[in-house]
Nucleic acid binder design. Sequence first.
RNA 1: GUGGAUGUAGCUCAGACGGCUAGAGCACCAGGUUGUGGCCCUGGGGGUCGCGGGUUCAAGUCCCGUCAUUCACCCCA
Length: 426
Amino acid sequence: MLKAPRGTQDILPPESSQWVYLESVLRDVCRRYNYHEIRTPTFEQSELFSRTVGEATDIVEKEMYTFKDKTGRDMALRPEMTASVARAFVEHGMASGPLPRKFFYMGSMYRYERPQAGRYREHRQFGVEVLGSDSPYSDVEVIVLAMDAAGALGLTGTQLVLNSIGCPTCRAAYRSRLIDHLKVRVNELCPDCQSRLERNPLRVLDCKKDACKAVTSGAPGMLDHLCPECRLHWGEMTRLLAAQGIDFTVDSSLVRGLDYYTRTVFELKWPPLGAQNAILGGGRYDGLVEEIGGPRVPGVGFAMGMERMLMALAKGSRPIGADAGIDVFVIGMKGADSLASEKAFALVRSLRQSGLSCEFDPLQRSMKAQMKQADRANAKFVAIIGDEEAKNGIVTVRCMGEGWQKTVGLDHVVSFVCEEVARLGK
RNA sequence: GUGGAUGUAGCUCAGACGGCUAGAGCACCAGGUUGUGGCCCUGGGGGUCGCGGGUUCAAGUCCCGUCAUUCACCCCA
């Protein structure tokens, strides 16, 4: 049997309505923050990601879905969105327009990983990007946007974790200092960390192995080695966050897995989710636009794992997205001729054109069977047209909730039902 | 990529030591009411027991492989 590829999933009704709900809440938050939607291609030249995300990162090294197109160009399904947004920003000369530009996006990302709960090969992200502002206010704006989005969705119990990884200059200095410190006891580190030592020493800091923790416990912290500019930015940003009443914890071991980050990095965690408990993550990327050949334009943003958010909402606070029922179910009884059925079908269309949600049974089953469907569809009203009604130009209207029914002339049944639906709605 | 657990109907699950036509609840369809839902009763449809090998007179049950899901590592959203 044919199955959906590993790590992918079908989103079926009624769960799909939860996605619609999630998307609508996020869009409304973005409207209030004046962020505008950007849509970019699902695949890009592979080079875009190897240059920005980083040649030596797991994402580029072993998780990208790459392929050659018919002319032999190296392409990749996008593993993340920030590089694409930056590319579009440069390609369309937005740097010479008003700055900053503020974008949001929603879409599928692709990474060849071992699937587990909260981690998929195709997953959907919502995210925002601000390009053209190096102000700590922008860092704080995207963070409070994230917090407000979580709040608007009713998610409680999240933890905001922050760190600064400095700029290329102070990070390089810190890096060699850290390597020097770790080298002294290199043989006490786990094999993973030994190989990480030269490639990505910051990662050694958040290794969970006790042996490594012992070695790193006295290690210097990045925050103590920021250059004056980075230290100022960090200080301002944390001060502004605190002034907004945002609780956060500083975690000097927080390192993001993409090379383009500078200064601020953060994650919003929701512990009950288990191993994959970061609902969203992001940070500042002041060198990214330049890296892809654009001007010096700073940026900051985050990405939210939408599946993870839905998992958290389902597991936590309150259920969402219950589908409301339909307004009217029209029953057309199959009689000696098809007159009643056809009149019923015409009525369905009129009701729909008038703005009501309406359903009928194309299989023209028995009255009982159709009543059952109406009940299952959670219909407020049932309109019945059988031989008698068709002949006399009338319709029997039944209110499912209140139990009554009456006959109404076919020519004013639409307005009658509209009024009744409005009455129930109050 | 590494390790553990799991895989029987659309869904949730039963199927002691291998042994007749593989079951239940829910869902679905029909009938009980010749034109009236929710409750109830009766009946019905639906399963290559994830897939492929092997052991055996006999495999849903045991063995191997494989695919998928899941938990953790890793990584990240």
